[in-house]
């Protein structure tokens, strides 16, 4: 009788385990691969005609060009993307000194053009990844300062407007911001506490455990910001890169940069920020922070989206 009971329990446990496991990642077919799209925005504000003319920035256009080149090289080497076309998947929106722009040029990074471009991305597939990179000024509330346009003077893209523009884009969205106060673009999350700002982490963490009305961790929006909500982002002052973007580029595998005949060329290797053969948002962020000069990490406090999820950008 005892043996029968024992055997019945073993069989029951095995059936339960099989049913349990059959509904997890190990047995359910994975979603199909999507592609990656990037809008790389760099603004130097040299043509600004508004009343409050912002200071010109020397590294922002270089930042945006290098980021798009880095993503192009990585996307072409990656094995986790379905189809990738440099012409349609990499979009540079630049405003740089010495170039003349017409009002109808869709690659000019005015507020309207940026939001229009995001509107076009609403036709993406649900398995795609859309990356929005921005290098430029940020206002004290985190609002991004687009390029000057006579028809939209002193225009800003607030964190709320950006979120609203992104929410209807299918698939995963990655926002990488190298601008002052860019931490304001990271949605509030009550499931975790920030160890950098919490004065009583133990108490705050347990308070969050009992929090009933919590924000749901998003599996579709991933944000990396060069600065926290109340800190500025810096560039060295020459025509290099912003400190944060330079570290991101190192993480993406930018190993050499030469300027020949006014054109910058880039060389890439396997991204050092990879963990094995996978490049994730958390991996890229932690590598970038480790590569940044310590004094600028303290000055800027780069931030990462909070919550449960991490995202695979590329697999090689």
């Amino acid at each position: 009788m005892k043996r029968f009971l024992f055997l019945s329990m073993i069989v029951l446990a095995s059936i339960s385990l099989a049913i349990f496991l059959s509904s997890c990642e190990l047995f359910v077919p994975e979603p199909e691969n999507g592609t990656i799209r990037i809008i790389s925005i760099g603004i130097d504000y040299s043509n600004y005609g508004g009343s409050n003319k912002p200071s010109t920035l020397k590294g922002t256009v270089n930042d945006a060009k290098a980021i798009s080149q880095a993503f192009l090289a990585l996307a072409q080497a990656a094995v986790n993307l379905s189809e990738f076309s440099p012409e349609s998947n990499i979009i540079e929106m630049l405003q740089e000194k010495g170039k003349v722009y017409t009002a109808t040029d869709p690659s000019y990074p005015s507020k309207t053009n940026i939001l229009d471009q995001l509107e076009i991305f609403k036709e993406c597939d649900k398995n795609d990844i859309t990356v929005i990179y921005y290098s430029g000024h940020g206002d004290t509330d985190g609002s991004l300062l687009p390029a000057y346009s006579a028809t939209e003077s002193n225009a800003r893209i607030s964190p709320e407007e950006m979120l609203e523009a992104l929410v209807d884009i299918p698939g995963k969205k990655v926002l990488i911001l190298d601008s002052c106060f860019s931490g304001n673009h990271i949605p509030h999350d009550e499931t975790t506490i920030d160890l950098q700002t919490s004065e009583n982490a133990w108490h705050d963490a347990f308070a969050s455990l009992w929090e009933k009305e919590t924000t749901i961790s998003s599996d579709s929006l991933f944000v990396i910001s060069a600065a926290s909500t109340d800190k500025q982002s810096f560039e060295p002052g020459d025509e290099g890169h912003g400190f944060f973007t330079e570290s991101i580029l190192k993480g993406l595998g930018l190993v050499n940069e030469d300027t020949e005949d006014g054109e910058t060329t880039y060389a890439f290797t396997t991204p050092p920020a990879c963990n094995g053969n996978t490049l994730t948002i958390d991996g890229l962020f932690s590598y970038a922070v480790s590569e940044m000069p310590t004094e600028y990490v303290k000055l800027q406090s780069p931030q990462l989206i909070r919550g449960l999820y991490d995202l695979v950008l590329f697999e090689f």
Binding site: T191, T192, I193, D194, L195, Q196, S198, A201, W202, D204, A205, F206, S208, L209, D282, G283, F285, S286, V289, L304, I305, R306, G307
Partner: peptide, 17 residues
């Protein structure tokens, strides 16, 4: 136990029972 948990690169903490 009451556990104090943290995500390393993200510098975020949470609790668990």
């Amino acid at each position: 136990t009451a556990l104090f948990c943290w995500y390393d690169p993200a510098q975020q903490a949470f609790a668990a029972i």
